[in-house]
Design a protein around this nucleic acid. Structure first.
Lengths: 246, 246
DNA sequence: TCTAAGTTATTTGTATGAGTAAAGAGCTGA
DNA sequence: TCAGCTCTTTACTCATACAAATAACTTAGA
């Protein structure tokens, strides 16, 4: 039957979300750590024991640990074993870690911290975009905006257009590290948007604010773009907080 | 002998800089990718062939690839092989990637982008720190500043104090993701500082500006802290550019 | 009694070989 | 032209053996 293509069916190009065993184990352990089921300082069971518990080979388990270790979540040494590192050493901006954090029902504090960071970074990115955008950027943003208006954020297509809109802004800022940062956060925020959509209807029409931002970037007005983006993030935070209370 | 403890002798707690084989292979390949010796889209030789070339076991090689894959540098699939991903998918803010980038003689553009990001993030972090710092934060910063003044940036101890000073500011901002971001960048910037120190003497005394920043945070004055940090980053950029020209 | 050197035991790290599963290429038949 | 099948290449998984590292213990010496 499967008439309704739910979110579950969408084939995302997740870096580690594949169904390979080492990937699944890494994801499961990652979520468990982010959820606090393994706390910093805890030492995991030995490789042999744990891999047997998980019903996978030692090879696959070890590759999973390498992934977690690459993201700063754990640290392994002979004799001592593999232990969860201090939270301050986690790469909290790693896309996978953010995704895992949201799977693990992130704390309100964490969400607030992310929005605080967005509030710092994204307005600045918008300002840069206003200074550096090309004609191609503008036409892409225009197209995305149009689709967004046509389909709305309640549809998959509409949300994709929204993402595309914001992504183009980041590209227009012409700064690799900045883009890496913001798109990580953007991905995470997408999950909150999904949360939001599930719990309550969107309380207001986001289109006017998007249009203001668009116009500012087209006009090449950094200050206006910064202000418009600030407003957008502020509203997103308000919406998110509202849905968290619900 | 070993009278002079050079940089090489310092035992850094690098996440992947260990001397384990998978770590070294990951590092070497990572640097090669960052240096452009393998370009996005390129497909690496097969596991068997490549691991033989590198004179390591397939196990160790595969674990190295898992590390790179976790950082978004490569992507492996059966039949297709392991290929370097598009630069837009690299986690450019991962501490290891930043370190590898600097080993690979980063482009001037990249350094400039990083400073642009610092200029966005760090003043904001300083402002938050001014609002949220505790007594403990203040005393730690004061201590670091004192040591910095006593030993100067030409010594290892002095540089450690400098790092500690900035790190405490980040902690005082009370924002996990923000801290993860800034300390990644800070680590990278440390490398540039080392570069700098090697090529030319520090062109000016950084202490007065540090003191201004310190006073602003002690006074709980966000605007002043933001301005002071902006100035610090601006000067760091100027110094770096100067040493790049040299 | 305390210190320092050496030994041991435990855990991760590396190596190898065999077999499995995924996915693009090409073929086949409508 | 295209749908479906087979084929073949490649990474993936598993099992086993052995090596290396290091925390904990032991012992020799002061």
């Amino acid at each position: 039957m499967r008439g309704d293509p739910g979110y579950e069916d969408i084939k995302l190009p997740l870096a580690s979300g594949s169904r390979r065993i080492h990937g699944s184990v890494a994801r499961d352990l990652g979520v468990a750590i982010l959820a606090g089921r393994y706390a910093p300082g805890d030492v995991l069971p030995g490789e042999i024991e744990f891999s047997e518990q998980l019903k996978v080979s030692r090879t696959a388990y070890r590759e999973a640990v390498r992934i977690l270790s690459a993201k700063g979540l754990v640290e392994s040494r002979p004799r001592t074993g593999t232990r969860v590192t201090q939270r301050s050493r986690w790469n909290l901006l790693d896309p996978d870690i953010l995704a895992w954090a949201f799977e693990a029902e992130p704390s309100e504090t964490f969400i607030r911290d992310l929005f605080e960071l967005r509030m710092i970074v994204e307005p600045a990115a918008a300002a840069l975009a206003a200074e550096r955008r090309s004609g191609l950027d503008i036409s892409r943003m225009g197209h995305a905006l149009e689709e967004m208006g046509r389909y709305g954020l309640a549809t998959e297509i509409g949300r994709a257009a929204d993402q595309s809109f914001h992504n183009t802004i980041l590209e227009a800022a012409r700064n690799g590290p900045l883009m890496a940062l913001s798109s990580s956060i953007a991905a995470a925020v997408t999950w909150t948007t999904i949360f939001k959509q599930r719990r309550s209807a969107l309380p207001r029409d986001p289109m006017p604010d998007h249009r203001i931002l668009y116009e500012a970037i087209v006009a090449g007005d950094p200050a206006a773009a910064r202000a418009a983006m600030t407003e957008l993030v502020r509203l997103a935070l308000a919406d998110t907080e509202l849905s968290l209370k619900a």
